[in-house]
Computed example of a mutant assay.
Amino acid sequence: MEISSNRPVYIDYLLMTIGTCFMAVAINSIYDPISMVTGGFTGIAIIVKAYSNIPLWLTNIMLNIPVFLIGARIKGFRFIARTLYSTAALSIWLYVLPTMNIMTEDYILAAIFGGVISGIGIGMVFLARATTGGTDMVAAFLQHYLKHYSIAQILQLIDALVVLAGAYIFGLNRALYAIISIFVVSQVTDGIIEGLKFSKLAYIITNHQDEVANAIMTVMERGATGLHATGMYSSLEKKVIMCVVSKKEIVQVKEIVTQIDPNAFVIVSDVREVLGEGFMEYKFNK
């Protein structure tokens, strides 16, 4: 049995097209007008434009050309095909979209909304199993030789150097706001990729495990799993009930447990995404 995506290929390219449009709006209309450098090749392009008036789209293309040539030679064309499309789409959007100063001089709004818009765009590109090239690919190439470091670590270092360059040229104040924007981008991107349908995971330690489990399964119509555990202090073996419910249902779980066993020990944690019956369905192609 082979696992594959049921999503048509054109949907991926649509995601890349729309996602790069969002990114270009953030760059052209928020970051560039107030010289906020948030890392990446677009950050370098903002710095270059400040000294030479070379447009962002042209710098982005010129920086990516050698990166893609190296990528095609090391990894093969199939590895860079989607990323090549998304990089080209971003450069085209940077060229055709007008430059407007949406946030004027309000740096905190620029950092937050720029991060949200850019994060949505990057998340859509990642959902299409692509990137926009730039420092992502540079980090991947360097990791080929610096195997003791992860791609994420190398990427963070490269982007940090770009932000520091922006701080040197445009001032520390803008760089600090850029860090806020980078944080917002990462949070929004993670939400897009990992899903926004948060659930709750509950571990219930009780001496009335059968009653609690039955109540959860019959009253709430939710599944429950018994995990074998041993108390390290008492050396007694017991079952820990594990169940996953929606955010609204966790209140009912705690009420059920409290009614049956007020002395029960309950651990509740956040779950980013749940696949399976009763939650997000997934399919296999046979």
Results as ranks from 00 to 15, higher is better:
133 G>Y: 02
176 L>K: 05
143 Q>N: 15
126 F>Y: 11
122 I>Y: 05
136 D>C: 06
178 A>W: 00
129 R>D: 12
185 V>K: 01
194 E>Q: 06
213 A>D: 11
118 S>L: 12
219 V>S: 00
204 I>G: 08
154 I>V: 12
142 L>W: 12
143 Q>H: 15
206 T>R: 09
173 N>F: 03
192 I>F: 01
173 N>C: 00
217 M>L: 04
208 H>P: 11
174 R>N: 11
140 A>Y: 13
154 I>Y: 10
192 I>N: 05
131 T>W: 01
177 Y>G: 01
182 I>S: 04
122 I>K: 01
156 Q>V: 14
137 M>H: 09
190 D>H: 07
153 Q>I: 14
137 M>W: 12
122 I>F: 04
124 M>L: 15
142 L>C: 14
185 V>R: 02
175 A>R: 01
127 L>T: 02
167 A>K: 07
159 D>F: 01
129 R>S: 10
207 N>P: 13
149 Y>F: 15
158 I>T: 11
120 I>T: 02
147 K>D: 09
150 S>F: 13
206 T>M: 10
139 A>W: 03
145 Y>K: 15
139 A>Q: 11
202 A>Q: 10
191 G>M: 11
211 E>L: 11
129 R>W: 04
212 V>H: 07
202 A>V: 13
216 I>L: 08
136 D>L: 02
191 G>H: 05
219 V>N: 03
186 S>F: 08
135 T>G: 05
219 V>R: 01
167 A>S: 14
134 G>S: 03
140 A>M: 15
204 I>W: 12
128 A>K: 01
194 E>L: 12
199 S>A: 09
195 G>R: 06
159 D>V: 04
